[in-house]
Structures are given as structure tokens and as C-alpha cells.
């Protein structure tokens, strides 16, 4: 039998972190393990390229902070 991957589409089972590459209005392009994908940044104001965000269903929920 084939075991399905364990990353859930509704609630990734680890922090799906993404590095912001470009920002245009309420949309950003982020890099996840080198793969570029668009995410909505309506809920995380002030995001800038280089920031690391936690994304859920293509929506950024929070900007991660270093040193914690």
C-alpha cells in the first residue's frame, strides 16, 4: 500500500515557513524551500522582502521572530 504524505492541506503539521521575496499590495511572492508561490498578506501588515512568515492556505498569518 502507499502511505500518503503527512502534511495536511488544512493545517500543515509543521510551521510552513516562507521567506518573502516580493511584495505588491496585499499579495506577496514567497519562497518555500526554493519554490516560489503567491500568498495574501492582508493580515500581516508591513511585511517586507526577507521577512519569514507562517502561511496557511496561501494566507500569511504571522511574521516569525528571531531569537525566541
Amino acid at each position: 500500500m502507499t502511505l500518503r504524505p503527512v502534511v495536511c492541506t488544512t493545517c500543515g503539521d509543521r510551521a510552513v515557513t516562507a521567506t518573502v521575496v516580493t511584495v505588491e499590495g496585499a499579495q506577496a511572492v514567497v519562497s518555500v524551500d526554493g519554490r516560489l508561490t503567491p500568498v495574501a498578506i492582508d493580515l500581516v501588515p508591513g511585511v517586507a522582502p526577507g521577512d519569514v512568515v507562517l502561511c496557511h492556505a496561501s494566507v500569511a498569518l504571522v511574521r516569525l521572530e528571531d531569537g525566541t
Binding site: C11, D42, H56, A57, S58, V59, L61
Partner: peptide, 16 residues
């Protein structure tokens, strides 16, 4: 749409 408060914001943004 399913999910807890984690997924609800994505639905909310979509509706808006």
C-alpha cells in the same frame, strides 16, 4: 470551508 481559527482567516480574506 472547514477548519479551526487557523483556516477561518483565509476564508474571511477570500470573502472580503
Amino acid at each position: 470551508a472547514i477548519g479551526f481559527e487557523t483556516t477561518a482567516p483565509a476564508t474571511a480574506v477570500t470573502l472580503l
